[in-house]
Amino acid sequence: MGSVSLKIGDGTARFQRATLCSSAVNILMIFSVITTNLFALYAFTSPKQPHHLLHHHAHKNISLISEQVSLILREIDLSQKKLAQMEKELLGYESLDLSRPNIATELKLFLTRHQLPLGKDSRTGITEMVPSVGHTCEKNSDLLSQFMSYKAFGPCPDDWSVAQKLILRGCEPLPRRRCFAKTIPKSGLFPFPDSLWKPNVRFVRAKSKNDFVVDDVLALGGGGVRIGLDIGGGSGSFAARMAERNVTVVTSTLNVDAPFSEFIAARGLFPLYLSLDHRFPFFDNVFDLVHASSGLDVGGKIEKLEFLMFDVDRVLRAGGLFWLDNFFCANEAKKQALTRLIERFGYKKLKWVVGEKVDSVGSGKPEVVLSAVLQKPIRA
């Protein structure tokens, strides 16, 4: 497994990773050993010659072998460098040079390691506090420096859009800042539960066979649903309906096209400002319910969805419910790929409905829709 570490000290933050290409290098090493042995075999099994000729040929063979070995070693070294560079370009593990003039001073201060005043901590075993930043921040160092350019202990610039650009580009988590966030007076806040503000009947009344009702799904949980996670929950309507039923739901969202986080908080609910590429900041097996709709569609290769689904499975407790709500499948192949992926987890299908709806947000055309309620099994 690879690992990423942030090394500060000489003014450079380096992201180091064990090479994924060691197998290729091993093959080259084996090839060099075989070639050397073949040359040695040739030298010792060639027809006998007079003593002076034998000495001449032996010297010539040794020189040839040495030259061949040197050539192979140079090829191995060159291949290692090429493979390492290819890996850096593919994965984004580059050097974040903090000595560059365009790097903000606050960024340099944040990335500095801080030794613990009393030395090694007996409980955790650490000796220093190491800051955390996303590994792809290097590819957006100019934007990151813009985010970290502010007056320390003064008001933060109104640059939430810069922060969101960094998050969407994989620079997550963002570094902390030493400035005061802008405060906006909020009037008209209602006490809970009046603050929930439920303008529609979604999750309460079904408009199609793919729309499941909250009470029906909770009944499948046998009364054991207390806390949940809503992935890509928009304005928090699902969390509001669950709050009516004394179920606490955390809603992950970004402020794409609207200030969703502020709106969710104004409703007295819990917004989690997080992209789908970020590992859920929760411990294993903590949620009774995970709800996701088409926001679960991360696009790209199936492997990306697999990583997300395994993280969903990680935070969902055994016996918990995974509610896949009106997931739009662009085609039959995508539905089959998603179905195969779900089946690999061994979930029990409590509800499974395939229908067709018009994707008003995406293509605007009728597409296959999958809705399901799945129960996580107990694994050894």
Rank of each mutant, 00 (worst) to 15 (best):
residue 284 D to H: 10
residue 272 L to T: 05
residue 289 L to F: 11
residue 233 G to M: 04
residue 240 A to G: 06
residue 294 S to F: 05
residue 280 F to S: 04
residue 293 S to T: 09
residue 255 N to E: 07
residue 236 G to W: 00
residue 280 F to Y: 15
residue 224 G to T: 09
residue 275 S to N: 08
residue 301 K to E: 14
residue 297 D to H: 11
residue 281 P to H: 03
residue 264 I to P: 00
residue 235 S to N: 13
residue 223 G to D: 07
residue 242 M to I: 05
residue 233 G to L: 02
residue 223 G to L: 08
residue 265 A to W: 09
residue 256 V to K: 12
residue 224 G to E: 14
residue 258 A to N: 14
residue 233 G to V: 02
residue 290 V to I: 15
residue 264 I to V: 15
residue 260 F to E: 12
residue 255 N to G: 11
residue 264 I to T: 08
residue 246 N to S: 14
residue 282 F to I: 09
residue 303 E to P: 01
residue 280 F to I: 11
residue 297 D to S: 15
residue 271 P to C: 07
residue 269 L to Y: 01
residue 228 G to K: 09
residue 289 L to A: 11
residue 274 L to K: 10
residue 221 G to A: 07
residue 228 G to C: 03
residue 275 S to F: 00
residue 248 T to P: 02
residue 226 R to I: 08
residue 266 A to I: 00
residue 282 F to W: 05
residue 242 M to Y: 08
residue 285 N to H: 15
residue 263 F to I: 14
residue 222 G to D: 05
residue 268 G to E: 03
residue 273 Y to T: 12
residue 265 A to H: 13
residue 269 L to G: 00
residue 256 V to R: 15
residue 243 A to E: 07
residue 245 R to H: 02
residue 297 D to Q: 14
residue 272 L to K: 07
residue 227 I to K: 15
residue 227 I to A: 13
residue 254 L to S: 11
residue 293 S to Q: 07
residue 216 D to A: 08
residue 245 R to M: 02
residue 240 A to R: 06
residue 216 D to V: 02
residue 294 S to W: 01
residue 239 A to C: 05
residue 221 G to H: 03
residue 224 G to A: 12
residue 266 A to P: 00
residue 262 E to S: 15
residue 241 R to M: 11
residue 218 L to A: 02
residue 281 P to F: 08
residue 219 A to P: 00
residue 240 A to W: 02
residue 303 E to W: 06
residue 263 F to M: 15
residue 279 R to F: 08
residue 252 S to C: 13
residue 278 H to G: 02
residue 232 G to Y: 08
residue 255 N to K: 07
